[in-house]
Design a protein around this nucleic acid. Structure first.
Lengths: 111, 111
DNA sequence: GCTCGTTATATTTGATCGTATATAACGGCT
DNA sequence: AGCCGTTATATACGATCAAATATAACGAGC
């Protein structure tokens, strides 16, 4: 059964969508970019690039990082990071609700 | 100013989003896959592949084609093609309306 | 029956994207 | 002081994506 997914498109072609949002969530859960990347099944470099671009698009860093220390370091969401995550989930929920009858109708159109 | 875009994700990984929908519109306007592809700035092959996959995902062809004849042939949307276009536009409109306040709030969060 | 633009399909070329790998700095902990 | 996992970054390799090119069939109109 098909499901709606959405993205926020910026003027320069950059986008924030389910992938970057899920990564932010994993980083918040696991406490580092690298473990978040592992949880997402992607390379650290890719995760770092995604986090970096998310911050660039929003005009504010979405994670605060620290290198070194007992466990090597880590990362946590900045307030801006937490906000974009919450807002994106709110948009998803609202959009899914209003789209549901249309999707149901679309499915009934054919098989 | 960022804008919302959405896609319908199917279980097998296939998606229907703004690109395929815009292509269908161009085909309807211009009367052929190839002229629709030109209007979208893409190759005929890519346009054909997109049309084909859209039909596959929906379980019904979205264009009816004919080769040969005075103007070489052409294509027009099937009822299924017209329906998915209308429904997608309806979903977009409804989603944009409910998402707008959230996006405004997100913009106010930073710059 | 020849032409012309289209559909339909295969193959090659090139660009883009992501992984893998390497390297350096960092800093609590033992 | 040394260790370890992390951040941050660069480079090389592979895979995937899309364009470009090529080919054949089609059929109304001249």
């Amino acid at each position: 059964m098909p499901v709606l997914s959405l993205r926020i498109d910026f003027e320069d072609g950059g986008r924030i969508g389910p992938g970057k949002i899920a990564l932010l969530e994993k980083i918040a859960e696991t406490g580092s970019i690298s473990s978040g990347a592992r949880a997402m099944g992607m390379s650290y470099k890719r995760a770092w690039d995604l986090v970096d671009e998310t911050g660039r698009l929003l005009g504010a860093p979405v994670v605060e990082t620290r290198a070194g220390g007992a466990r090597g370091g880590g990362a946590q969401l900045t307030p801006a990071g937490e906000r974009v995550l919450e807002r994106f989930r709110a948009i998803e929920e609202a959009a899914a609700k209003v789209a549901e009858p249309h999707i149901d109708a679309m499915l009934k159109d054919n098989g």
